[in-house]
Nucleic acid binder design. Structure first.
Length: 834
RNA sequence: GCCAGAGUGGCGGAAUGGCAUACGCAGCGGACUUAAAAUCCGCGGAUGGCAGCACCAUCGUGGGGGUUCGAGUCCCCCCUCUGGCACCA
């Protein structure tokens, strides 16, 4: 052993040892031990990582190592979400083939992960761009196709000039591209969709079955799914009889409808307009609206505008004819794209009605009966009594609501219905570097699925990237031209590729049998290993990867090849690591802000264990944290101190044959021994009860302080030495998940055989926690006025008597009357005095 | 607007209704050293009484109320910040 903490040497040494020993190799068929599937979201291989990325992997590694020490059979795999646009852009700008680019990035990132000391079962490594993997992604596509859940349709879709088509989930609330930040436009294109809407209710309901997910993520998904209960009411166009169904959550206001509002995109308008009296004016309005970018149109205070269409609709409840207005405040994507407007009881309709001087009709009266349409300044949206509503007058509106729908249902023009906000998932992309969609287009047979035994549809390597526009795959004659699997005639391959989200929404199944060439996963094996016991990743995937994965697993469940219907039992979403940029403000680490901290230099200067310790110590793991360069000193000093303690006492540690014996201990070592077991209890609890790694580490640091408080002269006795040694030894074991290299090294230095994780997690000795005396806090009116030492078994009466006899207490009680004495056994005495 | 989460020393942060500021950073004082670094020991919320110390008092967890013997913690109202949803009918 050397005096100075040689982190370089020991980190290399133990990383090699773990590989050699196959410490993280998982035998998935070993059922003698309880299984634990610990999964950290696999990354897109972007090239290099900063310390913020490391937070993920380190936390997963802590849990993996801890569970291994507790005797679990742990599956901890890693892989690469390897398809994606940056690789394709590199091909365009730098002439590097996406495959070469990706392979190079993977190699570098793997090395970074290794240098962090993060352990995985690399024999299970997968990359989604590997044909043996994407073959099965294609298989899943075909499964959905077979089940009628994959379909192609022409629709206005989100279009990013760089990233091509986008799913709704990839567009931010500001109407920009989630990946590159460019404004998103609408384009009419024929695209592939997955019917996620068919699973909306189950995706919502089953959120109840995953309580170990963060509440925040479950709410984000519930918001996104956006379930809304209400009614469908069939209005009809007065002039032509065309059906005009609307969705409303307020059927109780049906008699207050004074106009109908329709979205500019509504297809009915295109049918009605030609030759109609207001055609010019209406067309001008529609054309103008369609040119306004989505983001702007949705802007908060956008003025409500509209134009009378020249047509009317008839309200089936009272046969009243009301005008049909084309407006900018009704969105085509939600409901039916048409809204029954009730200005008296809806603020938006009210604003619009006042602006265009349309009638306002009160149908729900407040308790005072004071609502008068002419004088209202805002819509009345509270509950009240029905009025001017023919058969329902006088009824409380909430009760009438169901009666009104039932009334319409009997007569066939209304029904109860549920509306969802979520839209079908657009999965096709006009790019090369993705999983080819296994479909062939035949003039005679249409879109024909490629037979399963012909998978994978291989992505050709020899493509031309330099051209400016379009998908390089579509220009590859050899790929495009094929024959129809059905009729054998010449046909064209689908040239769109799948969104990478589809590649990543089943990878956790593949890890169990990663090299199986006969099936995507083994139903029996995944039944044992899944759901994932602990999933770790970023909250930014809340309505993307995490929602898609839940959907695909439910589909596979319905297909009969997946026995469970939720993939992730527990989810942990870690906070981002931020750093102050040039402008002095805090941002998440990014190249553009110039505030990234690379792990490589820190590992060179301080070692991986120090970096790990600081990353974990920085704050509560679920919260964002600020990286402070100077902060790394603390963990570095701590590990140096630990090393030095073992170095200084190495002779003594070897010459202490005695085991700790509670009955033989003197006060100083007895106190340390108690502190040791309190620490074991608290650290165990901090890990088990929710990733509280920062406080776990603080506890171990406190133990170190207590160890140092034991002065040299106190170490003369064999018992003191035995406790000292035991404390160091257990401290090293507790540190093994956090700082594995130094723990391994010191474990050997303490005279143990190599492999600290095999030594197991230290156990709490209950008897060691007990104390002879307790410190009792004395309060007067809730203020601390002193503290006394009492025997641990002091009764309430003993405590009260001792408190009232305390000189400090007597002094403070001068001129005061004791009104009440509260005694909390073992803790404190509070005297209420006046 | 609706729904979450957060607000505690100079800083990152800790606290099952029971000692506010654990642990760490930065800072200050001391030891060691020719010196520095490293290390070791110690101090450390604010204000006031005092020349200063010891000591003592008052205030103190975004603001204002409340419940309680006792509130950072529970309840009500409000402010600020972060995230999600949003002309969603």
């Amino acid at each position: 052993m050397q005096e100075k903490y040689p982190f370089h040497e020991i980190e290399r040494k133990w990383q090699a040892w773990w590989e050699q020993e196959q410490t993280f190799r998982c035998d998935t068929h070993d059922t003698t031990r309880e299984k634990f599937y610990c999964l950290t979201m696999f990354p897109y291989p972007s090239g290099s990582m900063h310390v913020g990325h490391g937070r993920n992997y380190i936390m997963g590694d802590v849990l993996t190592r801890y569970k291994l020490m507790r005797g679990f059979n742990v599956l901890s795999p890693m892989g690469w979400d390897a398809f994606g646009l940056p690789a394709e852009n590199a091909a365009k700008t730098r002439g590097v083939h996406p495959k070469t680019h990706t392979i190079g990035n993977i190699a570098h990132m793997k090395e970074q992960i290794r240098s962090w000391g993060v352990g995985y079962d690399w024999s299970r490594e997968i990359a989604t761009c590997h044909p043996e993997y994407y073959r099965w992604t294609q298989w899943i596509f075909l499964k959905l196709h077979e089940m009628g859940l994959a379909y192609r349709k022409a629709a206005p879709v989100n279009w990013c000039p760089l990233c091509t088509t986008l799913a709704n989930e990839e567009v931010t609330a500001e109407g920009t591209c989630d990946r590159c930040g460019r404004p998103v436009e609408k384009r009419n294109l024929e695209q592939w969709f997955f019917k996620i809407t068919a699973y909306a209710q189950r995706l919502l309901d089953d959120l109840e079955t995953i309580p170990k997910w963060p509440e925040k993520v479950r709410q984000m998904q519930a918001n996104w799914i956006g379930r809304s209960e209400g009614a469908r009411v069939d209005f009809a166009l007065s002039e032509t009889g065309d059906p005009c169904p609307v969705f409303t959550t307020r059927p109780d206001t049906i008699y207050g409808v004074t106009f109908m509002a329709v979205a500019p995109e509504h297809p009915l308008l295109q049918k009605l307009l030609p030759g109609s009296p207001n055609e010019q004016e209406v067309r001008a309005f529609i054309d103008h609206q369609l040119k306004i970018p989505a983001a702007e149109r949705a802007a908060e205070n956008a003025l409500k505008e509209g134009v009378f269409s020249g047509f009317h609709v008839t309200n089936p409840y009272n046969n009243e004819k009301v005008p049909l207005w084309v407006t900018n405040y009704v969105v085509m994507e939600y409901g039916t794209g048409m809204v029954m407007a009730v200005p008296a009881h809806d603020q938006r309709d009210f604003d619009f009605a006042r602006h265009y001087q349309l009638p306002v009709k009160v149908v729900i009266q407040n308790a005072e009966g004071s609502l008068v349409a002419e004088s209202m300044e805002d819509a009345y949206v509270e509950d009240g009594t029905m009025t001017a509503s023919a058969p329902f007058d006088g009824r409380p509106n909430r009760e009438a609501l169901t009666e009104i729908v039932a009334y319409g249902k009997e007569r066939g023009f209304a029904d109860f219905t549920v509306n969802f906000r979520i839209r079908d998932w657009l999965v096709s992309r006009q790019r090369y570097w993705g999983c080819p969609i296994p479909i062939v287009h035949c003039d005679a047979c249409g879109a024909v699925p490629v037979p399963e035994d012909q998978l994978p549809v291989l992505l050709p390597d020899d493509v031309e990237f330099q051209s400016e526009q379009g998908n390089p795959l579509a220009r590859h004659e050899g790929f495009v031209n094929t024959t129809c699997p059905k009729c054998g005639k010449p046909a064209r391959r689908e040239t769109d590729t799948l969104a990478q989200w589809l590649c990543s929404c089943w990878y956790f199944l593949r890890y169990v049998n990663p090299r199986d060439t006969t099936q995507p996963f083994d139903t029996g094996d995944i039944a044992h290993w899944l759901p994932v016991d602990q999933y770790i990743g970023g909250v930014e995937h809340a309505v993307l990867h995490l929602l898609y994965s839940r959907f695909i697993v439910k589909v596979l469940h319905d297909a009969g090849c997946c026995p469970f219907s939720e993939p992730f039992e527990a989810l942990f979403t870690q906070g981002m690591i931020c750093k102050k940029a040039e402008d002095g403000k805090l941002y998440k680490m990014s190249k553009s802000k110039g505030n990234v901290v690379s792990p490589d230099q820190l590992i060179a200067d301080y070692g991986a264990d120090t970096l790990r310790l600081y990353t974990l110590f920085i704050g509560p793991p679920e919260m964002d944290a600020e990286w402070q360069d100077a902060g790394i000193q603390g963990p570095y000093r701590f590990l140096g101190r630990l090393w030095r303690r073992v170095w200084e006492s190495r002779d003594m540690l070897r010459d202490t044959p005695v085991q700790p014996d509670l009955h033989a201990m003197a006060r100083p070592e007895r106190d340390l021994y108690r502190k040791l077991h309190q620490t074991i209890r608290n650290v165990t609890d901090a890990i088990e009860s929710g990733f509280r790694f920062n406080t776990a580490i603080a506890q171990i640091m406190e133990l170190m302080n207590a160890l140092d408080a034991l002065k040299a002269e106190a170490l003369e006795t064999p018992q003191a030495r035995a406790v000292f040694r035991q404390t160091l030894s257990d401290m090293v074991r507790m540190l093994a998940p956090f700082t594995p290299h130094v723990a391994e090294e010191l474990w050997v230095e303490l005279g143990n055989p190599a492999g600290v994780m095999k030594a197991g997690w230290p156990a709490v000795i209950e008897a060691a926690l007990e104390a002879d005396t307790i410190e009792v806090v004395l309060q007067i009116n809730g203020k601390v006025r002193g503290r006394i030492e009492l025997p641990a078994d002091a009764s309430r009466e003993d405590m009260e008597r001792a408190a009232l006899a305390d000189p400090q207490v007597i002094r403070h009680l001068e001129d005061r009357q004791v009104r009440k004495v509260i005694v909390v056994p073992g803790r404190l005495v509070n005297i209420a005095a006046g």
